[in-house]
Design a protein around this nucleic acid. Structure first.
Ligand SMILES: [Mn+2]
Ligand SMILES: [Mn+2]
Ligand SMILES: [Zn+2]
Ligand SMILES: [Zn+2]
Lengths: 141, 141
DNA sequence: TATTAATTGAAAAGAATTCTCATTTAGCAC
DNA sequence: GTGCTAAATGAGAATTCTTTTCAATTAATA
């Protein structure tokens, strides 16, 4: 998934290709881990200093609705955003906040749950493992 | 786990057994699903109308630190609290917010992750499945 | 009952997110 | 290119959620 694919996607939905949106997408493409709205805003501001958080949140909303971005909630409550690429989950450090992705998910659990709750229309799931990374453990000791 | 067990726990840690704390624990014991701080506060207020949210949050913090309460973050970002009973996860309705617990967790995934990241000190994990419950589906249709 | 440190209520402060509205602008027709 | 229009933006106000502050209260202990 590259920038022009994403822009084509927006265009098809009748959305304007504003420079702000393009830059937000560029930052998301370059990100190596899920970003908070604030982090995303700061990165966007490197090139467009007066894009406000309002625009960041609005854009994230539209991208979520288009299914291009997904929102993950990490322990402590912070919402983070990333482009939808391969489905993945994260190993999150409670010390420094860094996240490492892993590509597999609890398929057996999901199957059990769906089987046990036929009335429920399952739309998604979240899974995250948290603890302390090597660096933070050394820093503590 | 009943009320006097919990109170004994608090006492052992040198914490005061205030009526506010007791009521918060009673409400958490009676709850059938994780509560937001606000919901918890309102339920506490039925008996103690002037307990403020400040006290609710402070008490939840102490209970978390004692390992008696755990915090779960549901999709959208709301933090919810429940007594630590058996380890469990939830099936959460995106429509009405109701949650149903299920008692198993992705053990195989957790093992794979721990094996692949020996430097990382795993302290916990979160897992939630979301979608729309039977009631909400009927309401939509 | 007197003492004391922990706890509380009330209110202020902070942080995160959403809303409002006047202004700007991308996309389109001419 | 020029003008039109609905969509998008910037700036800031407003909400909502959570933490902090501090003077007053109170549970625990002697
Ligand atoms: Mn998964
Ligand atoms: Mn589990
Ligand atoms: Zn770390
Ligand atoms: Zn529902």
């Amino acid at each position: 998934m590259n920038l022009s694919d994403l822009l084509t996607g927006l265009k098809e939905k009748g959305l304007k290709l504003t420079p702000q949106r393009q830059q937000i997408l560029r930052v998301l493409l370059a990100a190596e881990q899920p970003l908070s709205a604030k982090e995303l805003g700061m990165l966007v501001n490197r090139r467009f200093p007066n894009v406000g958080l309002g625009t960041v949140y609005r854009t994230l909303d539209t991208l979520k609705q288009l299914g291009l971005v997904n929102e993950t909630v990490f322990p402590g409550g912070g919402r983070r955003y990333e482009l939808c690429r391969e489905h993945r989950h994260h190993l999150v450090c409670l010390g420094c906040g860094r996240a490492v992705a892993f590509p597999f998910c609890p398929a057996d659990c999901l199957a059990k749950i769906a089987a046990a709750n036929p009335d429920f229309d399952v739309r998604g799931h979240s899974f995250a493992v948290f603890g302390y990374c090597g660096k933070c453990r050394k820093a503590q000791a």
